[in-house]
Design a protein around this nucleic acid. Structure first.
Ligand SMILES: NC(=O)c1ccc[n+]([C@@H]2O[C@H](COP(=O)([O-])OP(=O)(O)OC[C@H]3O[C@@H](n4cnc5c(N)ncnc54)[C@H](O)[C@@H]3O)[C@@H](O)[C@H]2O)c1
Ligand SMILES: NC(=O)c1ccc[n+]([C@@H]2O[C@H](COP(=O)([O-])OP(=O)(O)OC[C@H]3O[C@@H](n4cnc5c(N)ncnc54)[C@H](O)[C@@H]3O)[C@@H](O)[C@H]2O)c1
Lengths: 232, 232
DNA sequence: CCCACTTTGTGCGTGCTTTCACAAGCGCGT
DNA sequence: ACGCGCTTGTGAAAGCACGCACAAAGTGGG
Protein backbone atom coordinates (compact mmCIF):
# COMPACT_ATOMS: atom_id res chain seq x y z
CA UNK A 1 0.00 0.00 0.00
CA UNK A 2 1.33 3.42 -0.93
CA UNK A 3 1.47 5.87 1.92
CA UNK A 4 -0.84 8.73 1.19
CA UNK A 5 0.41 12.29 1.37
CA UNK A 6 -0.26 13.88 4.75
CA UNK A 7 -3.74 15.23 4.28
CA UNK A 8 -4.58 18.08 6.65
CA UNK A 9 -8.19 16.95 6.93
CA UNK A 10 -8.84 13.24 6.44
CA UNK A 11 -12.32 13.10 4.93
CA UNK A 12 -13.24 9.56 5.80
CA UNK A 13 -16.96 9.52 6.41
CA UNK A 14 -18.07 6.09 7.64
CA UNK A 15 -20.20 4.17 5.19
CA UNK A 16 -22.98 3.77 7.75
CA UNK A 17 -23.11 7.53 8.11
CA UNK A 18 -23.27 8.09 4.37
CA UNK A 19 -26.26 5.79 4.19
CA UNK A 20 -28.09 7.87 6.78
CA UNK A 21 -27.32 11.33 5.45
CA UNK A 22 -30.05 11.11 2.80
CA UNK A 23 -32.55 10.30 5.53
CA UNK A 24 -31.52 13.32 7.53
CA UNK A 25 -31.63 15.43 4.42
CA UNK A 26 -35.19 14.43 3.69
CA UNK A 27 -36.29 15.14 7.23
CA UNK A 28 -34.59 18.52 7.10
CA UNK A 29 -36.23 19.43 3.83
CA UNK A 30 -39.61 18.58 5.31
CA UNK A 31 -38.81 20.89 8.23
CA UNK A 32 -37.69 23.57 5.85
CA UNK A 33 -40.98 23.37 3.95
CA UNK A 34 -42.75 23.76 7.25
CA UNK A 35 -40.74 26.88 7.95
CA UNK A 36 -38.67 25.56 10.85
CA UNK A 37 -35.44 27.51 11.17
CA UNK A 38 -33.49 25.50 13.74
CA UNK A 39 -33.79 22.04 15.22
CA UNK A 40 -32.16 20.09 18.02
CA UNK A 41 -30.43 16.80 17.46
CA UNK A 42 -33.09 15.20 19.64
CA UNK A 43 -35.94 16.33 17.44
CA UNK A 44 -34.19 15.70 14.16
CA UNK A 45 -33.22 12.25 15.35
CA UNK A 46 -36.85 11.60 16.14
CA UNK A 47 -37.91 12.63 12.67
CA UNK A 48 -35.24 10.46 11.10
CA UNK A 49 -35.91 7.47 13.34
CA UNK A 50 -32.45 7.24 14.88
CA UNK A 51 -30.72 7.75 18.18
CA UNK A 52 -29.75 11.39 18.81
CA UNK A 53 -26.17 10.59 19.77
CA UNK A 54 -25.79 8.74 16.51
CA UNK A 55 -27.17 11.67 14.62
CA UNK A 56 -24.78 14.09 16.29
CA UNK A 57 -21.84 11.85 15.62
CA UNK A 58 -22.88 11.49 12.00
CA UNK A 59 -23.15 15.23 11.56
CA UNK A 60 -19.86 15.78 13.33
CA UNK A 61 -18.16 13.99 10.46
CA UNK A 62 -19.17 16.85 8.19
CA UNK A 63 -17.91 19.49 10.54
CA UNK A 64 -19.12 21.45 13.51
CA UNK A 65 -22.30 22.85 12.13
CA UNK A 66 -24.42 23.04 15.26
CA UNK A 67 -24.68 25.63 18.00
CA UNK A 68 -24.61 24.41 21.57
CA UNK A 69 -27.63 25.35 23.51
CA UNK A 70 -29.57 25.97 20.29
CA UNK A 71 -29.34 23.18 17.74
CA UNK A 72 -28.73 23.12 14.01
CA UNK A 73 -29.79 25.71 11.51
CA UNK A 74 -32.00 23.78 9.12
CA UNK A 75 -31.16 25.62 5.94
CA UNK A 76 -27.44 25.55 6.52
CA UNK A 77 -27.49 21.87 7.33
CA UNK A 78 -29.51 21.08 4.22
CA UNK A 79 -26.86 22.81 2.19
CA UNK A 80 -23.96 21.09 3.91
CA UNK A 81 -25.42 17.61 3.59
CA UNK A 82 -26.38 18.25 -0.03
CA UNK A 83 -22.89 19.35 -0.80
CA UNK A 84 -21.36 16.39 0.97
CA UNK A 85 -23.58 13.98 -0.93
CA UNK A 86 -22.77 15.65 -4.20
CA UNK A 87 -26.28 16.91 -4.80
CA UNK A 88 -25.18 20.43 -5.57
CA UNK A 89 -24.20 19.17 -8.97
CA UNK A 90 -26.43 17.48 -11.51
CA UNK A 91 -26.29 13.79 -12.22
CA UNK A 92 -27.49 12.33 -15.49
CA UNK A 93 -29.20 8.99 -15.17
CA UNK A 94 -29.86 6.44 -17.90
CA UNK A 95 -32.39 3.67 -17.36
CA UNK A 96 -31.99 0.42 -19.29
CA UNK A 97 -34.96 -1.95 -19.54
CA UNK A 98 -38.19 -0.08 -19.99
CA UNK A 99 -40.56 -2.77 -18.82
CA UNK A 100 -42.94 -2.66 -15.89
CA UNK A 101 -40.34 -1.41 -13.48
CA UNK A 102 -38.40 0.76 -15.88
CA UNK A 103 -41.55 2.63 -16.84
CA UNK A 104 -42.47 3.17 -13.20
CA UNK A 105 -39.01 4.56 -12.56
CA UNK A 106 -39.13 6.79 -15.61
CA UNK A 107 -42.51 8.16 -14.57
CA UNK A 108 -41.45 8.66 -11.01
CA UNK A 109 -41.46 12.39 -10.54
CA UNK A 110 -39.71 12.96 -7.23
CA UNK A 111 -36.79 10.97 -8.53
CA UNK A 112 -34.27 12.16 -6.06
CA UNK A 113 -35.82 15.37 -4.85
CA UNK A 114 -33.13 17.24 -6.73
CA UNK A 115 -29.81 16.62 -8.35
CA UNK A 116 -30.83 13.68 -10.50
CA UNK A 117 -32.08 14.00 -14.05
CA UNK A 118 -33.28 11.12 -16.17
CA UNK A 119 -31.38 11.70 -19.37
CA UNK A 120 -32.13 8.59 -21.37
CA UNK A 121 -34.18 5.42 -21.59
CA UNK A 122 -32.90 2.36 -23.40
CA UNK A 123 -34.35 -1.01 -24.31
CA UNK A 124 -33.65 -3.92 -26.64
CA UNK A 125 -37.23 -4.72 -27.63
CA UNK A 126 -38.21 -3.21 -31.03
CA UNK A 127 -41.74 -2.93 -29.65
CA UNK A 128 -40.55 -0.57 -26.98
CA UNK A 129 -37.79 1.30 -28.79
CA UNK A 130 -39.06 4.50 -30.34
CA UNK A 131 -41.96 4.85 -27.97
CA UNK A 132 -42.20 7.87 -25.77
CA UNK A 133 -42.15 7.25 -22.04
CA UNK A 134 -42.25 10.12 -19.57
CA UNK A 135 -41.51 12.58 -22.39
CA UNK A 136 -38.41 10.71 -23.46
CA UNK A 137 -37.90 8.62 -26.56
CA UNK A 138 -36.82 5.10 -25.77
CA UNK A 139 -33.56 4.50 -27.60
CA UNK A 140 -32.14 1.17 -28.69
CA UNK A 141 -29.59 -0.37 -26.37
CA UNK A 142 -27.05 -0.36 -29.21
CA UNK A 143 -26.83 3.39 -28.80
CA UNK A 144 -25.75 3.11 -25.19
CA UNK A 145 -22.19 4.31 -25.70
CA UNK A 146 -23.34 7.22 -27.81
CA UNK A 147 -26.07 8.20 -25.38
CA UNK A 148 -23.72 8.02 -22.41
CA UNK A 149 -21.27 10.27 -24.18
CA UNK A 150 -23.73 12.80 -25.54
CA UNK A 151 -25.89 13.10 -22.45
CA UNK A 152 -23.03 12.92 -19.99
CA UNK A 153 -24.60 9.98 -18.20
CA UNK A 154 -22.83 9.20 -14.94
CA UNK A 155 -25.30 6.86 -13.27
CA UNK A 156 -26.74 3.78 -14.93
CA UNK A 157 -29.92 2.07 -13.78
CA UNK A 158 -30.49 -1.54 -14.77
CA UNK A 159 -34.10 -2.71 -14.89
CA UNK A 160 -33.77 -5.56 -17.37
CA UNK A 161 -34.45 -9.22 -16.68
CA UNK A 162 -31.74 -10.94 -14.66
CA UNK A 163 -30.24 -12.65 -17.66
CA UNK A 164 -29.43 -9.40 -19.44
CA UNK A 165 -28.18 -7.45 -16.45
CA UNK A 166 -24.53 -8.48 -16.54
CA UNK A 167 -24.28 -7.67 -20.22
CA UNK A 168 -25.80 -4.25 -19.69
CA UNK A 169 -23.48 -3.63 -16.76
CA UNK A 170 -20.49 -4.53 -18.92
CA UNK A 171 -21.58 -2.05 -21.53
CA UNK A 172 -22.10 0.67 -18.96
CA UNK A 173 -18.62 0.07 -17.61
CA UNK A 174 -17.19 -0.01 -21.10
CA UNK A 175 -18.84 3.32 -21.79
CA UNK A 176 -17.27 4.81 -18.70
CA UNK A 177 -20.21 4.74 -16.28
CA UNK A 178 -18.86 4.01 -12.81
CA UNK A 179 -22.06 4.16 -10.77
CA UNK A 180 -24.71 1.52 -11.29
CA UNK A 181 -28.01 0.90 -9.58
CA UNK A 182 -29.20 -2.62 -10.22
CA UNK A 183 -32.78 -3.83 -9.84
CA UNK A 184 -32.21 -7.22 -11.43
CA UNK A 185 -31.81 -10.12 -9.01
CA UNK A 186 -28.23 -11.01 -9.86
CA UNK A 187 -24.82 -10.30 -8.44
CA UNK A 188 -23.05 -8.08 -10.91
CA UNK A 189 -19.41 -8.56 -11.68
CA UNK A 190 -17.62 -5.29 -12.27
CA UNK A 191 -14.02 -4.12 -12.17
CA UNK A 192 -12.55 -2.19 -9.28
CA UNK A 193 -13.51 1.43 -9.21
CA UNK A 194 -17.08 0.79 -10.30
CA UNK A 195 -19.72 1.28 -7.66
CA UNK A 196 -22.73 -1.03 -7.77
CA UNK A 197 -25.71 -0.82 -5.49
CA UNK A 198 -28.67 -3.13 -5.69
CA UNK A 199 -32.31 -2.88 -4.84
CA UNK A 200 -33.77 -6.28 -4.33
CA UNK A 201 -37.40 -6.70 -3.52
CA UNK A 202 -37.35 -10.42 -2.93
CA UNK A 203 -34.43 -10.23 -0.54
CA UNK A 204 -36.36 -7.73 1.55
CA UNK A 205 -39.39 -10.00 1.59
CA UNK A 206 -37.29 -12.95 2.62
CA UNK A 207 -35.79 -11.04 5.50
CA UNK A 208 -39.27 -10.05 6.60
CA UNK A 209 -40.36 -13.66 6.37
CA UNK A 210 -37.44 -14.78 8.49
CA UNK A 211 -38.34 -12.41 11.29
CA UNK A 212 -42.03 -13.17 11.01
CA UNK A 213 -41.33 -16.87 11.31
CA UNK A 214 -39.06 -16.33 14.26
CA UNK A 215 -41.75 -14.29 15.96
CA UNK A 216 -44.30 -17.01 15.29
CA UNK A 217 -42.08 -19.86 16.55
CA UNK A 218 -40.64 -18.77 19.81
CA UNK A 219 -42.47 -15.60 20.57
CA UNK A 220 -41.21 -15.09 24.06
CA UNK A 221 -40.66 -11.75 25.71
CA UNK A 222 -37.95 -9.75 24.03
CA UNK A 223 -38.14 -11.84 20.89
CA UNK A 224 -38.94 -8.84 18.74
CA UNK A 225 -36.13 -6.75 20.16
CA UNK A 226 -33.68 -9.56 19.61
CA UNK A 227 -34.72 -9.66 15.99
CA UNK A 228 -33.78 -6.01 15.64
CA UNK A 229 -37.19 -4.64 14.93
CA UNK A 230 -38.32 -1.07 14.54
CA UNK A 231 -38.53 0.45 17.95
CA UNK A 232 -40.30 3.70 18.44
CA UNK B 1 -35.53 -34.05 4.00
CA UNK B 2 -38.24 -34.73 6.51
CA UNK B 3 -36.02 -35.21 9.52
CA UNK B 4 -35.78 -32.19 11.75
CA UNK B 5 -32.35 -30.85 12.50
CA UNK B 6 -30.46 -33.02 14.98
CA UNK B 7 -29.70 -30.35 17.50
CA UNK B 8 -31.87 -27.62 18.94
CA UNK B 9 -31.44 -24.76 16.52
CA UNK B 10 -29.36 -21.78 17.44
CA UNK B 11 -31.61 -18.93 18.35
CA UNK B 12 -29.29 -16.17 17.32
CA UNK B 13 -28.50 -15.83 13.65
CA UNK B 14 -26.72 -12.49 13.17
CA UNK B 15 -28.72 -9.93 11.26
CA UNK B 16 -25.93 -9.47 8.74
CA UNK B 17 -26.08 -13.17 8.00
CA UNK B 18 -29.85 -13.16 7.55
CA UNK B 19 -29.50 -10.42 4.96
CA UNK B 20 -27.10 -12.57 2.95
CA UNK B 21 -28.94 -15.88 3.09
CA UNK B 22 -31.33 -14.87 0.30
CA UNK B 23 -28.35 -14.08 -1.90
CA UNK B 24 -26.85 -17.49 -1.26
CA UNK B 25 -30.20 -19.08 -1.86
CA UNK B 26 -30.54 -17.47 -5.24
CA UNK B 27 -27.05 -18.50 -6.27
CA UNK B 28 -27.76 -22.04 -5.15
CA UNK B 29 -30.99 -22.22 -7.08
CA UNK B 30 -29.19 -21.08 -10.20
CA UNK B 31 -26.66 -23.86 -9.64
CA UNK B 32 -29.45 -26.34 -9.07
CA UNK B 33 -31.07 -25.36 -12.36
CA UNK B 34 -27.75 -25.93 -14.03
CA UNK B 35 -27.59 -29.40 -12.52
CA UNK B 36 -24.71 -28.82 -10.13
CA UNK B 37 -24.86 -31.26 -7.23
CA UNK B 38 -22.20 -29.96 -4.88
CA UNK B 39 -20.26 -26.73 -4.53
CA UNK B 40 -17.36 -25.48 -2.48
CA UNK B 41 -17.57 -22.42 -0.27
CA UNK B 42 -15.04 -20.76 -2.52
CA UNK B 43 -17.16 -21.14 -5.62
CA UNK B 44 -20.44 -20.31 -3.95
CA UNK B 45 -18.86 -17.25 -2.38
CA UNK B 46 -17.74 -16.20 -5.85
CA UNK B 47 -21.25 -16.58 -7.21
CA UNK B 48 -22.68 -14.62 -4.31
CA UNK B 49 -20.03 -11.93 -4.39
CA UNK B 50 -18.72 -12.42 -0.87
CA UNK B 51 -15.63 -13.62 0.93
CA UNK B 52 -15.55 -17.41 1.35
CA UNK B 53 -14.76 -17.29 5.06
CA UNK B 54 -17.79 -15.11 5.58
CA UNK B 55 -19.92 -17.53 3.64
CA UNK B 56 -18.75 -20.47 5.70
CA UNK B 57 -19.35 -18.65 8.94
CA UNK B 58 -22.79 -17.62 7.78
CA UNK B 59 -23.71 -21.18 6.88
CA UNK B 60 -22.26 -22.48 10.12
CA UNK B 61 -24.99 -20.60 11.94
CA UNK B 62 -27.54 -22.90 10.36
CA UNK B 63 -25.65 -26.03 11.27
CA UNK B 64 -22.90 -28.17 9.91
CA UNK B 65 -24.24 -28.83 6.47
CA UNK B 66 -21.01 -29.15 4.51
CA UNK B 67 -18.63 -32.03 3.96
CA UNK B 68 -14.94 -31.35 4.40
CA UNK B 69 -12.92 -32.07 1.35
CA UNK B 70 -16.06 -31.92 -0.79
CA UNK B 71 -18.23 -28.88 -0.22
CA UNK B 72 -21.94 -28.39 0.21
CA UNK B 73 -24.70 -30.41 -1.37
CA UNK B 74 -26.65 -27.86 -3.35
CA UNK B 75 -30.10 -29.33 -2.96
CA UNK B 76 -29.78 -29.91 0.74
CA UNK B 77 -28.48 -26.42 1.32
CA UNK B 78 -31.32 -24.90 -0.69
CA UNK B 79 -33.75 -26.69 1.54
CA UNK B 80 -32.02 -25.70 4.76
CA UNK B 81 -31.76 -22.03 3.86
CA UNK B 82 -35.34 -21.99 2.63
CA UNK B 83 -36.50 -23.49 5.87
CA UNK B 84 -34.47 -21.07 7.94
CA UNK B 85 -35.86 -18.10 6.04
CA UNK B 86 -39.38 -19.37 6.41
CA UNK B 87 -39.89 -20.01 2.72
CA UNK B 88 -41.23 -23.49 3.21
CA UNK B 89 -44.48 -21.89 4.22
CA UNK B 90 -46.59 -19.52 2.18
CA UNK B 91 -46.76 -15.82 2.86
CA UNK B 92 -49.72 -13.74 1.76
CA UNK B 93 -48.81 -10.27 0.60
CA UNK B 94 -51.09 -7.27 0.21
CA UNK B 95 -50.00 -4.27 -1.84
CA UNK B 96 -51.47 -0.87 -1.05
CA UNK B 97 -51.20 1.90 -3.63
CA UNK B 98 -51.68 0.61 -7.13
CA UNK B 99 -49.98 3.42 -9.01
CA UNK B 100 -46.94 3.18 -11.25
CA UNK B 101 -44.92 1.24 -8.76
CA UNK B 102 -47.72 -0.82 -7.28
CA UNK B 103 -48.72 -2.04 -10.72
CA UNK B 104 -45.15 -2.98 -11.53
CA UNK B 105 -44.94 -4.93 -8.30
CA UNK B 106 -48.27 -6.64 -8.90
CA UNK B 107 -47.21 -7.66 -12.40
CA UNK B 108 -43.83 -8.83 -11.26
CA UNK B 109 -43.91 -12.55 -11.83
CA UNK B 110 -40.85 -13.85 -10.04
CA UNK B 111 -42.04 -12.12 -6.91
CA UNK B 112 -39.97 -14.01 -4.49
CA UNK B 113 -39.09 -17.11 -6.45
CA UNK B 114 -41.34 -19.05 -4.15
CA UNK B 115 -43.12 -18.67 -0.87
CA UNK B 116 -44.75 -15.32 -1.53
CA UNK B 117 -48.21 -14.92 -2.96
CA UNK B 118 -49.82 -11.61 -3.80
CA UNK B 119 -53.18 -11.99 -2.16
CA UNK B 120 -54.67 -8.54 -2.51
CA UNK B 121 -54.30 -5.11 -4.08
CA UNK B 122 -55.74 -2.03 -2.43
CA UNK B 123 -56.08 1.61 -3.38
CA UNK B 124 -58.01 4.71 -2.36
CA UNK B 125 -58.63 6.14 -5.81
CA UNK B 126 -62.13 5.31 -7.17
CA UNK B 127 -60.58 5.35 -10.64
CA UNK B 128 -58.35 2.46 -9.69
CA UNK B 129 -60.58 0.51 -7.33
CA UNK B 130 -62.49 -2.21 -9.15
CA UNK B 131 -59.99 -2.50 -11.95
CA UNK B 132 -58.25 -5.74 -12.54
CA UNK B 133 -54.46 -5.72 -12.24
CA UNK B 134 -52.43 -8.88 -12.68
CA UNK B 135 -55.63 -10.96 -12.42
CA UNK B 136 -56.61 -9.41 -9.14
CA UNK B 137 -59.40 -6.97 -8.45
CA UNK B 138 -58.21 -3.81 -6.81
CA UNK B 139 -60.15 -3.39 -3.59
CA UNK B 140 -60.86 -0.18 -1.74
CA UNK B 141 -58.53 0.62 1.12
CA UNK B 142 -61.50 0.68 3.49
CA UNK B 143 -61.64 -3.09 3.15
CA UNK B 144 -58.12 -3.51 4.43
CA UNK B 145 -59.03 -5.11 7.74
CA UNK B 146 -61.45 -7.50 6.08
CA UNK B 147 -58.98 -8.43 3.34
CA UNK B 148 -56.19 -9.03 5.82
CA UNK B 149 -58.42 -11.31 7.83
CA UNK B 150 -59.95 -13.24 4.95
CA UNK B 151 -56.80 -13.69 2.91
CA UNK B 152 -54.53 -14.29 5.86
CA UNK B 153 -52.24 -11.44 4.85
CA UNK B 154 -49.05 -11.43 6.86
CA UNK B 155 -46.90 -9.02 4.85
CA UNK B 156 -48.01 -5.56 3.82
CA UNK B 157 -46.40 -3.60 1.01
CA UNK B 158 -46.84 0.16 0.94
CA UNK B 159 -46.55 1.83 -2.47
CA UNK B 160 -48.61 4.93 -1.83
CA UNK B 161 -47.36 8.52 -1.91
CA UNK B 162 -45.32 9.52 1.12
CA UNK B 163 -48.15 11.44 2.73
CA UNK B 164 -50.42 8.40 2.94
CA UNK B 165 -47.84 5.87 4.02
CA UNK B 166 -48.01 6.37 7.80
CA UNK B 167 -51.79 6.08 7.74
CA UNK B 168 -51.63 2.87 5.75
CA UNK B 169 -48.98 1.50 8.08
CA UNK B 170 -51.19 2.27 11.07
CA UNK B 171 -54.07 0.39 9.49
CA UNK B 172 -51.86 -2.57 8.68
CA UNK B 173 -50.68 -2.69 12.27
CA UNK B 174 -54.21 -2.30 13.54
CA UNK B 175 -55.26 -5.22 11.38
CA UNK B 176 -52.51 -7.37 12.84
CA UNK B 177 -49.92 -7.24 10.07
CA UNK B 178 -46.49 -7.23 11.67
CA UNK B 179 -44.28 -7.23 8.58
CA UNK B 180 -44.23 -4.17 6.35
CA UNK B 181 -42.23 -3.34 3.26
CA UNK B 182 -42.29 0.36 2.60
CA UNK B 183 -41.49 2.00 -0.73
CA UNK B 184 -42.62 5.47 0.26
CA UNK B 185 -39.87 7.89 1.20
CA UNK B 186 -40.81 8.39 4.83
CA UNK B 187 -39.75 7.02 8.16
CA UNK B 188 -42.61 4.92 9.47
CA UNK B 189 -43.56 4.99 13.08
CA UNK B 190 -44.72 1.62 14.35
CA UNK B 191 -45.05 -0.07 17.73
CA UNK B 192 -42.57 -2.61 19.03
CA UNK B 193 -42.96 -6.02 17.52
CA UNK B 194 -43.67 -4.71 14.04
CA UNK B 195 -40.97 -5.20 11.47
CA UNK B 196 -40.52 -2.50 8.87
CA UNK B 197 -38.11 -2.61 5.98
CA UNK B 198 -37.78 0.10 3.42
CA UNK B 199 -36.73 0.25 -0.19
CA UNK B 200 -35.66 3.71 -1.10
CA UNK B 201 -34.55 4.51 -4.59
CA UNK B 202 -33.46 8.05 -3.96
CA UNK B 203 -31.31 7.10 -0.99
CA UNK B 204 -29.48 4.62 -3.19
CA UNK B 205 -28.92 7.25 -5.84
CA UNK B 206 -27.61 9.70 -3.28
CA UNK B 207 -25.14 7.15 -1.94
CA UNK B 208 -23.96 6.50 -5.48
CA UNK B 209 -23.59 10.23 -6.03
CA UNK B 210 -21.54 10.57 -2.86
CA UNK B 211 -19.06 7.94 -3.98
CA UNK B 212 -18.97 9.26 -7.52
CA UNK B 213 -18.16 12.72 -6.26
CA UNK B 214 -15.49 11.39 -3.96
CA UNK B 215 -13.92 9.54 -6.85
CA UNK B 216 -14.00 12.66 -9.00
CA UNK B 217 -12.50 14.92 -6.31
CA UNK B 218 -9.50 13.18 -4.97
CA UNK B 219 -9.12 10.25 -7.28
CA UNK B 220 -5.79 9.08 -6.04
CA UNK B 221 -4.62 5.49 -5.89
CA UNK B 222 -6.76 3.35 -3.67
CA UNK B 223 -9.53 5.90 -3.62
CA UNK B 224 -12.06 3.44 -4.94
CA UNK B 225 -11.14 0.78 -2.43
CA UNK B 226 -11.38 3.27 0.41
CA UNK B 227 -14.88 4.06 -0.70
CA UNK B 228 -15.84 0.42 -0.30
CA UNK B 229 -16.60 -0.35 -3.90
CA UNK B 230 -17.46 -3.61 -5.56
CA UNK B 231 -14.32 -5.63 -5.80
CA UNK B 232 -14.24 -8.67 -7.95
C1' DC C 1 -21.52 39.60 35.39
C1' DC C 2 -23.15 35.38 36.96
C1' DC C 3 -25.97 31.47 37.09
C1' DA C 4 -29.23 28.10 35.54
C1' DC C 5 -30.40 25.73 31.62
C1' DT C 6 -29.94 23.73 27.06
C1' DT C 7 -27.64 21.25 23.57
C1' DT C 8 -23.57 19.96 21.00
C1' DG C 9 -19.41 17.19 20.22
C1' DT C 10 -16.92 13.19 21.61
C1' DG C 11 -14.22 9.73 24.69
C1' DC C 12 -15.09 5.31 25.86
C1' DG C 13 -16.98 0.72 26.71
C1' DT C 14 -19.58 -2.88 24.38
C1' DG C 15 -21.02 -5.79 21.00
C1' DC C 16 -21.30 -7.05 16.22
C1' DT C 17 -18.85 -8.08 11.67
C1' DT C 18 -15.32 -9.26 8.89
C1' DT C 19 -11.16 -11.58 7.80
C1' DC C 20 -7.25 -14.51 8.57
C1' DA C 21 -5.28 -18.70 9.37
C1' DC C 22 -5.24 -23.36 10.48
C1' DA C 23 -6.54 -27.80 12.75
C1' DA C 24 -9.69 -31.27 11.92
C1' DG C 25 -12.28 -34.11 8.79
C1' DC C 26 -13.30 -36.39 4.50
C1' DG C 27 -12.51 -38.86 -0.06
C1' DC C 28 -9.60 -41.01 -3.17
C1' DG C 29 -5.79 -43.35 -5.08
C1' DT C 30 -2.35 -46.53 -4.18
C1' DA D 1 -4.58 -49.27 5.48
C1' DC D 2 -2.43 -45.11 4.81
C1' DG D 3 -1.15 -40.79 3.32
C1' DC D 4 -2.21 -36.76 0.37
C1' DG D 5 -4.86 -33.11 -1.13
C1' DC D 6 -8.86 -30.57 -0.58
C1' DT D 7 -12.36 -28.14 2.08
C1' DT D 8 -14.94 -27.13 6.10
C1' DG D 9 -15.69 -25.04 10.61
C1' DT D 10 -14.02 -21.89 13.91
C1' DG D 11 -10.76 -19.52 17.32
C1' DA D 12 -8.68 -15.17 17.49
C1' DA D 13 -7.66 -10.55 16.01
C1' DA D 14 -8.85 -6.38 14.00
C1' DG D 15 -12.12 -3.13 12.52
C1' DC D 16 -16.69 -0.85 12.78
C1' DA D 17 -20.75 0.80 14.70
C1' DC D 18 -23.65 2.11 18.44
C1' DG D 19 -25.10 4.52 22.40
C1' DC D 20 -24.07 6.31 27.11
C1' DA D 21 -22.70 9.91 29.61
C1' DC D 22 -20.49 14.17 30.31
C1' DA D 23 -17.48 18.24 29.63
C1' DA D 24 -17.56 22.18 26.87
C1' DA D 25 -20.00 25.83 24.88
C1' DG D 26 -23.63 28.59 24.08
C1' DT D 27 -28.29 31.20 25.54
C1' DG D 28 -31.12 34.03 28.32
C1' DG D 29 -32.76 35.94 32.67
C1' DG D 30 -31.80 38.56 36.56
N1 LIG E 1 -41.52 -5.34 -11.68
C1 LIG E 1 -41.14 -5.29 -10.41
O1 LIG E 1 -41.88 -4.87 -9.55
C2 LIG E 1 -39.79 -5.75 -10.03
C3 LIG E 1 -39.51 -5.83 -8.71
C4 LIG E 1 -38.25 -6.23 -8.30
C5 LIG E 1 -37.32 -6.56 -9.25
N2 LIG E 1 -37.61 -6.50 -10.54
C6 LIG E 1 -36.59 -6.81 -11.49
O2 LIG E 1 -36.44 -5.74 -12.37
C7 LIG E 1 -36.17 -6.20 -13.66
C8 LIG E 1 -37.21 -5.69 -14.60
O3 LIG E 1 -38.49 -6.12 -14.21
P1 LIG E 1 -39.75 -5.81 -15.09
O4 LIG E 1 -40.92 -6.32 -14.37
O5 LIG E 1 -39.75 -4.41 -15.51
O6 LIG E 1 -39.48 -6.75 -16.35
P2 LIG E 1 -40.07 -6.58 -17.83
O7 LIG E 1 -39.92 -7.87 -18.50
O8 LIG E 1 -41.39 -5.93 -17.76
O9 LIG E 1 -39.10 -5.51 -18.50
C9 LIG E 1 -37.80 -5.83 -18.86
C10 LIG E 1 -37.41 -4.92 -20.04
O10 LIG E 1 -36.03 -5.08 -20.31
C11 LIG E 1 -35.86 -5.14 -21.71
N3 LIG E 1 -34.62 -5.85 -22.00
C12 LIG E 1 -34.38 -7.16 -21.98
N4 LIG E 1 -33.10 -7.43 -22.30
C13 LIG E 1 -32.53 -6.25 -22.55
C14 LIG E 1 -31.23 -5.86 -22.92
N5 LIG E 1 -30.26 -6.76 -23.10
N6 LIG E 1 -30.97 -4.57 -23.08
C15 LIG E 1 -31.94 -3.65 -22.90
N7 LIG E 1 -33.19 -3.96 -22.53
C16 LIG E 1 -33.48 -5.24 -22.36
C17 LIG E 1 -37.07 -5.84 -22.22
O11 LIG E 1 -37.28 -5.51 -23.58
C18 LIG E 1 -38.15 -5.28 -21.32
O12 LIG E 1 -38.70 -4.10 -21.85
C19 LIG E 1 -36.15 -7.71 -13.57
O13 LIG E 1 -34.82 -8.13 -13.39
C20 LIG E 1 -36.92 -7.99 -12.32
O14 LIG E 1 -36.48 -9.19 -11.70
C21 LIG E 1 -38.84 -6.09 -10.95
N1 LIG F 1 -42.50 4.92 -9.26
C1 LIG F 1 -41.31 4.63 -8.82
O1 LIG F 1 -40.45 4.19 -9.56
C2 LIG F 1 -40.94 4.82 -7.42
C3 LIG F 1 -39.63 4.66 -7.07
C4 LIG F 1 -39.27 4.83 -5.74
C5 LIG F 1 -40.20 5.16 -4.82
N2 LIG F 1 -41.46 5.33 -5.18
C6 LIG F 1 -42.44 5.67 -4.15
O2 LIG F 1 -43.47 4.72 -4.20
C7 LIG F 1 -44.69 5.33 -3.93
C8 LIG F 1 -45.63 5.12 -5.08
O3 LIG F 1 -45.10 5.66 -6.26
P1 LIG F 1 -45.93 5.68 -7.59
O4 LIG F 1 -45.05 6.24 -8.64
O5 LIG F 1 -46.54 4.34 -7.82
O6 LIG F 1 -47.06 6.74 -7.23
P2 LIG F 1 -48.49 6.86 -7.90
O7 LIG F 1 -48.98 8.22 -7.59
O8 LIG F 1 -48.43 6.42 -9.30
O9 LIG F 1 -49.37 5.81 -7.14
C9 LIG F 1 -49.79 5.97 -5.83
C10 LIG F 1 -51.08 5.21 -5.64
O10 LIG F 1 -51.43 5.21 -4.26
C11 LIG F 1 -52.81 5.45 -4.16
N3 LIG F 1 -53.08 5.99 -2.82
C12 LIG F 1 -52.90 7.26 -2.40
N4 LIG F 1 -53.27 7.37 -1.11
C13 LIG F 1 -53.71 6.17 -0.74
C14 LIG F 1 -54.24 5.67 0.47
N5 LIG F 1 -54.34 6.42 1.57
N6 LIG F 1 -54.60 4.38 0.52
C15 LIG F 1 -54.48 3.61 -0.56
N7 LIG F 1 -53.98 4.03 -1.72
C16 LIG F 1 -53.61 5.30 -1.82
C17 LIG F 1 -53.13 6.38 -5.26
O11 LIG F 1 -54.51 6.28 -5.58
C18 LIG F 1 -52.24 5.85 -6.37
O12 LIG F 1 -52.90 4.87 -7.11
C19 LIG F 1 -44.38 6.79 -3.68
O13 LIG F 1 -44.25 7.00 -2.29
C20 LIG F 1 -43.06 6.98 -4.34
O14 LIG F 1 -42.33 7.99 -3.70
C21 LIG F 1 -41.86 5.16 -6.47
Amino acid sequence: MISRPPRPRERGIPEATVARLPVYLRALQALQDRGTATISSEDLAGAAGVNSAKLRKDLSHLGSYGTRGVGYEVEYLVYQISRELGLTQDWSVAIVGIGNLGRALANYGGFGTRGFRIAALLDADPEVVGRSVASLDVRHIDNLEEVVRDKGVSIGVIATPAGSAQGVADRFVEAGVTSILNFAPVVLNVPDGVDVRKVDLSIELQILAFHAQRRADGDGPGAAERAGLEVT
